[in-house]
Design a protein around this nucleic acid. Sequence first.
DNA 1: ATTTAATATCGCAAATATACGATAAAGGGA
DNA 2: TCCCTTTATCGTATATTTGCGATATTAAAT
Lengths: 110, 110
Amino acid sequence: MAQNKKAAFSNKENELASFANAISHPARVAILKAIAKRETCICGEIVEVLPLAQSTVSQHLKELLKAELITGTIDGPKSCYCINWKTFDRFEKTFNEFFTNTNSNNPKCC
Amino acid sequence: MAQNKKAAFSNKENELASFANAISHPARVAILKAIAKRETCICGEIVEVLPLAQSTVSQHLKELLKAELITGTIDGPKSCYCINWKTFDRFEKTFNEFFTNTNSNNPKCC
DNA sequence: ATTTAATATCGCAAATATACGATAAAGGGA
DNA sequence: TCCCTTTATCGTATATTTGCGATATTAAAT
């Protein structure tokens, strides 16, 4: 874009948009599901489950890290990714709030 | 991207990602809030509320139309946008399902 | 010490997204 | 009929995203 206008919006709006952005790609949804499903805190088996190259998956993991939706720790030559439940719960709250607020003053105009 | 890999993911994953994508920009969150807040089914007053040019707002409205999160009807020289509650409710369900599924088998590994 | 396996990062190409001004289109009012 | 208002679309510039292969890095294993 010519300029980035995000600063012109409220914190709430930016936070929701930024969370939404983190899961706005099916690969990242799939990664979160894959991690959440495991008993243990696994690493790059994720690559095997996804229809993407290793480097691409790594990039998506980086995005999720940036959004703090997952944590990553180095475990020998491997890496271990886990859901960051603290952020994840806040994420859920932010969404619920959005849905509740939008619905509450719902004029059902059309 | 070189290629679009979305076809390689499940419908569920794509639907969630696509919904998330619709609200992955603060302007679109703000637009949805603005429309939901009104008593009547208003149109381009949205432009006045947003810190963006009219043409840019129009583009964001188009995105929300594409996602079927709003409906648009021509009302004389004006346009009238409303929340598409049918899609919006499905949207909410999709998100809740995602949060529930992810949490249910939550090993809290880290 | 050398090899191997697992990952992250770099460099690149192509596609999308964001933003704006200018212009077009369409209806209402003078 | 001729303007004015409202809104969509076009053209364009720039930024970001997505994807991959190649390469670097790091630690375990031999």
